[in-house]
């Protein structure tokens, strides 16, 4: 099924019906009649999208400038959602399976509180990627979020399990309050990475200033990083051999919490 945006929304469009689980069970006309919110107004999918029955391989394709369209792919559990264009907030919120691919940039709260599946963003993403919603303490519980570009603050806030990889830089408080899981940032980490982390792993191929509650352990060549990097290469990241085979400083923290978190920083 293919959806092309034909009318730009004036205010945010909450299109939480666009996910394969629901759409693949509908005919084109049934899909067009699905209810969505344009601001506070109830409208239908057909009022904004031209829907065609193009591919039958379990993929839903959405195209257009979707930067004001929120909640695409939220709650999905199987299938593929391919997005061509920039997309708004809460992409793939709470998803548990399937794959989302975005050929463009994404807004804030990409993959918040997901428990499975994979989100791939070819461009940049906003704040709170793979994080908690305000007021809860546990973020993503599984799945993978792969971002080629950079992200803003609070990447992986409260993360419990899973993998988040960022090709560019991350903003402040990367992996804040992390419980477990793995975050890889191939660019520069912002300020105060790992603040309040309990367990979990943050890896960066650059140096970073850490909080005074992190302590330096050693510099070595952990095999696990090699496996992670080789996996990332398979996902399409270009990574020089020197990073894959290089030495990394290992820091422990956050001492205010359990001190069982680890941050690896490339050390040549």
């Amino acid at each position: 099924m293919k959806l092309s945006l034909h009318t730009q929304p004036d205010v945010p469009l909450e299109a939480d019906v666009i996910f394969p689980d629901l759409l693949l069970e509908k005919t084109v006309s049934e899909a067009a009649a699905l209810e969505i919110f344009h601001g506070n107004e109830k409208t239908t999918l057909g009022d904004f999208f031209t829907i065609t029955d193009e591919n039958n391989d379990g993929t839903v394709e959405v195209e257009g400038d979707l930067s004001k369209v929120k909640l695409l792919g939220s709650g999905m559990s199987f299938g593929r959602l391919k997005i061509i264009g920039n997309v708004g907030a809460h992409l793939g919120a709470g998803m548990s399976g399937g794959e989302i691919i975005v050929e463009g940039d994404a807004g804030d709260w990409v993959g918040r509180e997901i428990s499975g599946g994979r989100i791939i963003i070819k461009g940049d993403a906003g704040h709170m990627v793979g994080s908690v919603v305000r007021g809860s303490s546990i973020g993503i519980q599984g799945g993978e979020i792969i971002i080629s570009g950079s992200v803003k603050n609070e990447l992986g806030n409260g993360m419990r399990r899973g993998l988040i990889a960022v090709g560019g830089d991350s903003g402040d408080f990367t992996g804040v309050n992390m419980k477990a899981g793995t975050i890889v940032v191939l660019g520069q980490l912002g300020q105060r990475p790992g603040a309040g982390m309990v367990r979990g792993t943050i890896i960066s191929t650059h140096n970073a200033e850490l909080l005074p509650t992190f302590t330096y352990d050693t510099t070595y060549r952990p095999t696990v990083l090699k496996s992670i990097f080789i996996y990332l290469r398979k996902l399409g990241f270009s990574l020089d051999d020197e990073y894959i085979n290089g030495n990394y400083q290992r820091w422990s923290g956050d001492s205010i919490e359990l001190n069982k978190g680890e941050i690896f920083l490339y050390a040549e």
Partner: peptide
């Protein structure tokens, strides 16, 4: 501010703190 508050918390809790404060 955050670094200082975090260091104070570590001191109150008697936790490890590096010397770059």
């Amino acid at each position: 501010d955050f670094e200082l508050l975090w260091a104070m918390r570590a001191m109150v809790k008697g936790k490890a703190l590096d010397n770059t404060l």
